[in-house]
């Protein structure tokens, strides 16, 4: 396997939620069914060993997309292939099980994602018991599991003796380390990280981000990193996808995207980040707020806030061509 082969392929992924009132209330009020399209046709690939960052504001659909990629949520349309295997497909069951072991997830809230009644050692041992430490099949013996848990705790910067403690005895940053240890216990290739540091203080965030990078180098991990923090994406990701109202509006190499954003929304997001170093980089103020996804605007979903919107943006939805979904960017390329 070479370095540039895709590990995850997402094709036309779409998720629609039914947000209607209950049947009887709807009947009485004579309301139609209402739906919310949380993710509307996402297409991208993640290459082996890279970190793909997904940024967007709340309600942009980035977490819904992540949950579909790991298989926690069923897609309404489209497919997710992991190493060519469709997890939701009906093909080879053994192949699907083998792939599932190699996908793990880290959640935002380290207070909610660890069972408070389990000892940390048991939390980390669960995936080892479920999947077996090495390959598929039965789990390893008890002693081997304990040794492996100790190893994992050390790998994430904790002490092997910490395995006997309960989650409440740890701080937020340490809990996130435990969640990472649990994720890598199954020896995954691909980890989806949903806002892994958003609940942490900056000095702790730096520790966790460095740890994630070290583990990536040592274990050859591939990350899908979901965050609203552009500086975190800039630090971690090799490529970035920007989401707005359920749609991917731009994908690009991190350096290029931050230096020359092509979609006006990406530009706006970058401008909104406080200028910590007071470098005096030019910024344009932004108006408006993300619209309600239940009732998205016609045409380009961004046009009501876009300073450069032209007539076509109000009526026609821009297709995702050449890594950007914007009429203006498409025109520029043609001329």
């Amino acid at each position: 396997m070479n370095a540039a082969d895709p590990i995850v392929e997402v094709h036309g992924l779409r998720r629609v939620f039914d947000v209607s009132a209950p049947f009887l209330s709807r009947l009485i009020a004579r309301e139609p069914r209402r739906t919310l399209t949380a993710v509307d046709g996402a297409d991208f690939t993640i290459l082996r060993g890279e970190t793909f960052g997904l940024v967007g504001e709340s309600g942009s659909g980035k977490s819904t997309l992540a949950r579909m990629v790991v298989g926690l949520l069923e897609a309404s349309q489209g497919r997710v292939l992991i190493e060519g295997v469709d997890l939701a497909g009906t093909g080879d069951k053994a192949a699907r099980r083998a792939i599932r072991r190699r996908i793990q997830m880290i959640f935002q809230d380290p207070y909610a994602s660890l069972n408070p009644r389990w000892r940390v050692g048991d939390i980390i041992a669960e995936p080892i018991r479920a999947f077996g430490a090495g390959g598929a099949g039965a789990g390893p013996g008890k002693r081997a599991t304990v040794a492996r848990v100790g190893e994992l705790l050390e790998l994430v910067g904790l002490h092997p003796a910490d395995g006997r403690k309960f989650p409440h005895e740890f701080s937020g940053g340490q809990r996130q380390r435990i969640a990472i240890a649990r994720a890598i216990a199954a020896q995954p290739d691909f980890i989806v990280c949903d806002e892994p540091t958003s609940a942490l203080d900056v000095s702790i965030q730096a520790q966790i981000l460095n740890l994630m990078r070290d583990l990536q180098d040592r274990l050859g991990l591939t990350y899908l990193l979901i965050t609203h923090n552009l500086a975190v994406v800039r630090f971690m990701a090799s490529r970035v996808g920007v989401m707005y109202l359920g749609r991917l509006v731009e994908i690009g190499e991190t350096e290029a995207l931050f230096a020359r954003p092509r979609h006006p929304y990406t530009r706006m997001l970058l401008d909104a980040v406080p200028d910590l170093m007071m470098s005096g980089r030019p910024r344009t103020p932004i108006g408006g707020e993300p619209p309600n996804p239940i009732d998205p605007p016609p045409g380009c979903p961004f046009h009501p806030r876009c300073p450069q919107a032209i007539a076509i943006c109000r009526t026609e939805r821009p297709a995702f061509i050449d890594n950007v979904a914007c009429h203006l960017a498409h025109d520029e390329r043609q001329n």
Partner: peptide
Amino acid sequence: QGLMAAIPTLEVSARRLAQIPGAM
């Protein structure tokens, strides 16, 4: 000093963030 160095920024791309060991 440690706090400022630990904050990732848009301007600087670093291989690692400076980190303060331990927690408050």
